[in-house]
Design a binder for these strands. Structure first.
Length: 260
DNA sequence: AGCCAGGGTCTGC
DNA sequence: GCAGACCATGGC
């Protein structure tokens, strides 16, 4: 067990539609990160990581929950917009998780024209059927499958997209490791070469899988709230951290989470 | 039964 | 570049 002092709102962060493998069971969040299974819950001013010792925490969860990023500074910048300021005050501090790029890419290919509970179910099926020890399956593993093999996960028309993307990544036709060091516009253009990846899925992969905080994915909810709140364009203070602002707005508009 | 879900592709203009 | 049909599935 490892305890880490932080004011991160765990419920808000894990249910804000950026990740799909965390589930709250008996007050404790259960998830799998880089193949490591963990239970996390809040106890006063601390988050408790049940299965982790200090080394595991430092190697996996410190990075994953983005504890090295100064969100105080980011939220101070975004507080120049009163809508975001109100949501931060009401809901608390959320982090943009540092998820693995391949998992993020496939997850958001699955998200197309889909709802969050079913996205979670399909990804759960994917990991149970094709992942090693409940981990997210590797590009090589998914690249070896056929659409018929994938039918057990009930992904529908997305099955073909998943396999094609996995093949492109496994063959380094799309080199995710290399893209890590590329500028945002290059990554976006490369990702959009994949079938099933348009602007929105590419931007979700950029924000959640490549941690490009300046990228704000625009789905139906965000499009609606942008048009309502900012008909004349987004506030200047969004620039660098539009992805973080977008996350607070998404939570409000989509109703994925309500403060209790 | 019909509508909706963190979209994207393909075709035709 | 933009509109519209279509894509597979499940919950309500």
């Amino acid at each position: 067990m490892y305890r880490y002092k932080t004011d991160l709102n765990l419920d808000l962060t894990l249910s804000s539609g950026q990740c799909f493998r965390w589930k709250k069971i008996n007050g404790s969040w259960h998830g799998v990160v880089r193949g490591f299974e963990e239970f996390v819950y809040r106890e006063g001013k601390y988050l408790v990581f049940e299965n982790s010792e200090e080394v595991i925490f430092n190697n996996i969860f410190y990075e994953y929950f983005d504890f090295s990023t100064d969100y105080g500074k980011i939220l101070k910048t975004l507080s120049n917009d009163e809508n975001v300021q109100n949501y931060v005050e009401k809901n608390g501090k959320l982090a943009i998780l540092r998820q693995e790029s391949f998992e993020t890419l496939i997850s958001f290919i699955i998200s197309a024209c889909n709802n969050i509970p079913r996205i979670m179910k399909i990804i759960d099926n994917l990991c149970k059927n094709f992942g090693e020890n409940n981990a997210f399956p590797s590009p090589e593993k998914l690249a070896s499958l056929t659409v018929e093999d994938l039918s057990v996960i009930r992904a529908g028309f997305r099955a073909d997209y998943i396999i094609n993307a996995a093949k492109a990544v496994a063959s380094k036709e799309i080199d995710l490791e290399y893209l890590e060091k590329s500028d945002t516009e290059t990554v976006r253009k490369e990702l959009m070469k994949l079938k099933g990846v348009g602007r929105k899925v590419a931007d979700c992969t950029l924000l959640y899988g490549f941690h490009r905080l300046e990228v704000a994915p625009v789905d139906r909810h965000i499009n609606r709230i942008f048009e309502r709140l900012y008909p004349n364009g987004l506030p200047e203070c969004f620039e660098e951290y539009a992805g973080v602002a977008q996350q607070y707005l998404f939570v409000e508009e989509s109703g994925v989470w309500t403060a209790s």
